[in-house]
């Protein structure tokens, strides 16, 4: 068997192995590349940056654990930016497990870095309601028709920041992070567009082509996949890098002191010393990985960029073997394959 035949009939497990290496090596060696923020992403940044303090912002997190690796970076960065602008945050989700995504993001970003944010006063989690775009249509006219309690079970009327919120029209901006249906498209069609509300957001790279038709008239700006998140991270770092870094450090510091306090209450002697040393070690680790923790998008773009290059390489080799094969085939007469394989006649036999 000639080399080109070997490449042509490549076992697809070999392709899988190549991709696995292309993705895992940059993760292991923490490779990241510089990014330039494109206009579409910059518009998201500018919109959020123009929000006055106290603006009501609806943060819709419509994704699940499966798409978390792709969407969490942008969710974190959007939340950081909104909190830096001191907006009032109304979390909502149309995905059942979106509730967990919201709580995780609050726990990992808002609470440690923005200690001044108080639940019910500065942010609230409205939680999940089933009904997809139906939910948007209802809240567009009347929030209380569907939401009698927030996601944590507290009656709506007892929550200070919900007292003057009757419907979607009370918001100044919708920020959506979505992995599919229902998501950004539905928020535009049934939420922002009918009431003339501004909307920005982000989605998975696969969904991005579907949103271009709405940009820039109905959708002010958006981010597609990790690439979009990386560009947002870049511009956020440029404008607020110092503040974000300071808040991260302060958050870690206060985590360490609470942790030590807790340990002192439950352990004594040598065991206490050992546990405190462990906590300090963890603190140090987190401090060292500050950039990686704060700019997930930039770091997750590394594996994606390398994987893109590998796929391009695969396409090139695929085509080279295809041309060699075709030249050789022309010399021989080949019987035509069965009808159902017609479309794949040139492909490798797998």
């Amino acid at each position: 068997m000639r080399i080109y035949e070997k490449i042509r009939d490549i076992d697809r497990r070999l392709i899988f192995l190549l991709i696995a290496l292309a993705v895992s090596l940059p993760i292991i060696f923490q490779i990241s590349f510089p990014e330039i923020t494109t206009p579409m992403v910059k518009k998201v940044f500018d919109q959020i940056d123009s929000m006055p303090a106290g603006s009501k912002v609806l943060l819709a997190f419509d994704y699940d654990p499966a798409s978390e690796p792709e969407l969490q970076p942008m969710a974190n960065s959007l939340l950081r930016h909104l909190a830096l602008r001191r907006c009032k945050l109304y979390f909502i989700t149309l995905w059942p497990v979106g509730q967990n995504m919201i709580e995780d993001t609050i726990k990992n970003v808002l609470l440690p870095e923005f200690g001044e944010y108080t639940y019910g006063v500065d942010y609230v989690n409205l939680g999940f309601k089933s009904g997809n775009e139906g939910v948007i249509k209802v809240v567009q006219t009347n929030l209380r028709k569907l939401y009698t309690t927030d996601g944590r079970g507290t009656a709506i009327d007892k929550i200070q920041m919900l007292k003057d919120v009757k419907s979607l029209a009370s918001m100044a901006l919708i920020v959506n992070v979505s992995a599919g249906y229902p998501g950004l498209k539905e928020w535009i069609q049934y939420g922002s567009d009918p009431v003339g509300l501004a909307i920005v957001g982000g989605c998975t790279a696969v969904q991005a082509p579907l949103l271009y038709p709405y940009y820039p008239n109905q959708l002010i700006g958006f981010m597609g996949g990790i690439k979009g998140a990386a560009e947002y991270d870049e511009i956020l770092r440029k404008n607020y890098g110092d503040q974000i870094s300071q808040r991260y450090k302060n958050g870690l510091q206060s985590w360490l002191s609470t942790e030590v306090g807790k340990l002192r209450a439950s352990y004594t002697g040598e065991q206490l010393q050992q546990r405190i040393a462990e906590a300090q070690e963890k603190y140090k680790q987190k401090l060292d990985s500050e950039k990686k923790e704060l700019y997930l998008g930039l770091f997750r773009m590394g594996p994606q960029a390398i994987a893109h290059l590998v796929i391009m390489l695969l396409i090139v080799t695929g085509n080279v073997t295809f041309f060699i094969d075709r030249r050789r085939r022309k010399k021989k007469t080949v019987s035509s394959p069965p009808a159902f394989l017609r479309k794949q006649e040139a492909g490798p036999s797998e």
């Binding site: 490549i10 697809r12 392709i15 899988f16 190549l18 991709i19 696995a20 993705v23 699940d64 654990p65 499966a66 798409s67 978390e68 690796p69 994987a307 590998v310 796929i311 695969l314 396409i315 695929g318 085509n319 295809f322 041309f323 794949q344 040139a346 492909g347 490798p348 797998e350």
Partner: peptide, 22 residues
């Protein structure tokens, strides 16, 4: 869930290798 979604990366590569022929 994340594992199943991540399979896409591998399938995109193998589909691209097969489909993108001039």
């Amino acid at each position: 869930g994340a594992t199943m979604f991540a399979l896409l990366a591998f399938y995109v590569a193998s589909a691209a290798y097969r489909a993108f022929r001039a």
